[in-house]
Design a protein around this nucleic acid. Structure first.
Lengths: 171, 171
DNA sequence: TGTTGTTACTTGAGGGCTCAACCAACTGGG
DNA sequence: CCCAGTTGGTTGAGCCCTCAAGTAACAACA
């Protein structure tokens, strides 16, 4: 422990921003999740799956691609698709060329559920996020989000590489 | 359906911003939650409870006040405190003046767990959120967050917010 | 061919969250 | 005092998520 570098704490302003950001995100999340759950009986992750599937050509996607597009783990998606299949929103199909693979296919019922849910959800997003912001702030939020994504994306690859090195036994 | 007003959809830019913001938040969340879980064996909500308790005078808070300060439901907090008590991080105490009430008291073990977890977590917050942003963007993010909070905070909770601010200084 | 490694996906256990129901204690009006 | 209404907090069921382990199929190569 003695060799560890001194942690860089947050300035007063950073601390204030972090707490407000944290609060804003948790309130937004609770608000949108609750709206979707109450009005359409689905968690937000399922809604995202429906959206991505509905935009895919043929309304079909490989599980892996769907997981990637929704930033979900394979496991999470697998559980989710199991339940959505039970709901009649989605149908699993075997992949003919790669027998390990599975397709997730949006059913008419799934599309209907999405079309039923979408207006209320979009309205909630608008009312809770965009309405209180000026157009300038919307633009700023977009740039901030892009910067965060760009910064966090290579970091994932880096963590994966370290993991690999540790498994091999370091050189 | 015929009488419902037409939904206001999102513009192209709003849609792009919403998707980026959504992705950024989910990546940030996953990153920070994972870091805290791996390095300190606690979910982020428990960390927040420890922080708030550690800053409270006497390191004690009524369950209700703690729930407010952490933007948590009573139920969630009750479950959380139960587990944190089992971990030895917190101790429940009865309230002498109102026998329904309960205090949550931070234990030395809980404080130690927090002090152990804090540097790594702060570093992760800095690295994933503040480092990729310019000082100007940090300021913008603070203003955006405040606007969202103000918009989402129901009027009935305004008194509660003031109450929270007074928890420190009022004694 | 077999063997090793990787990829695609599933499964089960365990933990956290929400919701609704609940109990117990305080409050206020008769 | 009584009794309804409210408040503070807990509990259990059900759901979603994560993690680790497992299965099955592909790929590379001796």
């Amino acid at each position: 422990m003695g060799l560890m570098s001194e942690p860089r704490w947050l300035s007063d302003e950073e601390q204030r921003v972090w707490r407000d950001f944290s609060a804003a995100v948790s309130m937004l999340r609770a608000h949108l999740e609750g709206q979707l759950q109450r009005d359409s009986g689905m968690p937000h992750t399922y809604y995202e799956v429906l959206v991505v599937l509905s935009e895919a050509p043929g309304r079909v996607l490989r599980m892996s691609d769907l997981a990637l597009a929704t930033r979900s783990s394979r496991s999470r998606l697998s559980h989710a698709i199991a339940r959505m299949e039970a709901n009649g929103w989605v149908r699993r199909e075997a992949c003919p060329t790669d027998k390990r693979g599975a397709f997730a296919h949006l059913t008419p019922g799934g599309l209907a559920a999405l079309e039923e849910a979408a207006p209320g959800h979009v309205e909630a997003v608008r009312a809770s996020l965009f309405d209180p912001l000026t157009p300038e702030q919307v633009k700023q939020l977009g740039e901030i989000s892009s910067a965060v994504i760009a910064n966090l994306t290579p970091r994932c690859a880096e963590a994966a590489r370290e993991e690999l090195e540790n498994l091999d036994g370091d050189g």
